[in-house]
Computed example of a mutant assay.
Amino acid sequence: MLLPAVVLVLVYSYYPMFGAVIAFEKFSAFKGMFKSEWVGFANFEYIFKMPEFPVVIRNTLIIAIMKIIGNLTVPLVIALLLNEVMSNLVKRGIQTLIYLPHFLSWVILAGILKDVLSPSSGIVNQALSFFGIDPVFFLGDNHWFPFVLVGTDVWKEFGFNTIVYLAALTAINPALYEAALIDGASRWKQTLHVTLPGIAPIIILLATLSLGNVLNAGFDQIFNLYSSATYDSGDVMDTFIYRIGVVNAQYSISTALGLFKSAISFVLISTSYFLAYRLANYRIF
């Protein structure tokens, strides 16, 4: 029964790892992977000297960290607010509405966002012009573009994490709320001293596991929204690797970049699982 799954993992996850050798070669498609000239760490020295490399690292860290913070705090606040809604019909209706964007691809959402945020005909800029504010080129301005990325990513994904928090809220013993009410605690005090401590392990778990995504700023979203005008603020590791490897056909350089990112991600993921185990008693088996 396990054989088909094992074969798929070996073919699609482990076999491609042999391609990492290209990072240490001056790869030629005509000579192949095993006959290309070996250059050692020359490709890594080259990428570390590229003027774009520090900018890409900076953009990746800034965008990824902002997304992590937003995707932890916004769902928590929404879950706490929904927990106070007494009507199950209203609560389930809101849950469904905020969860729907999670199922839409960034290809579809990018088309919608380009129309909504258009400086000439977008509804957002039309609303700004109504208040006498000049149109803003959200997808072409290096100042606004990172905030657009973070805001739209949080809008798309916060419904999923909200459900996770709501599930954690159901595990809190109702007797604790009754005891707090008898002691004269207000709804805010109950939230502060009963609700938040009750879901603290889940908050810690999601926060620590998110450390592994520090270098994953979201290729699908950025690739469908950015342009050459926003490279200075929106170009991240994944899009940079794509342009070098696929567009410019510099396979050795792009493989070296990918291997560098994978090595750092491996350390971050290992650290996040270790912290999740120590702080929230999380196990992957």
Rank of each mutant, 00 (worst) to 15 (best):
L196C: 03
I182W: 03
I65H: 05
G70T: 09
P119R: 05
V267Q: 04
G159E: 06
V116C: 02
S36M: 12
S262E: 03
F27D: 02
A175T: 12
L104I: 11
I98R: 02
F145Q: 03
G184W: 04
L97R: 00
L275F: 10
V107Q: 09
M17N: 03
Q250M: 12
L100E: 03
G212M: 03
P16G: 05
T271G: 14
S254D: 11
A249Q: 15
V247K: 15
N173T: 07
L8K: 04
F131Q: 09
S120K: 10
L215K: 05
Q190T: 06
S227Y: 04
I182Q: 08
F27H: 07
N213A: 13
Y277E: 14
A79F: 01
G132T: 06
V56N: 07
V85N: 03
R187V: 11
S28K: 01
H102T: 09
F219N: 04
A207S: 15
A168C: 05
E25D: 06
F240R: 07
P16Y: 02
V136Q: 13
R243E: 11
L268Q: 05
V194C: 08
I284Y: 10
K156Q: 10
V164L: 15
V74E: 00
K26N: 14
Q250N: 13
T208M: 15
Q190Y: 02
F260L: 13
K26V: 00
I47Y: 10
K261M: 12
F103W: 08
S36Y: 12
H143W: 15
V56W: 04
Y99S: 01
I163V: 15
I241H: 05
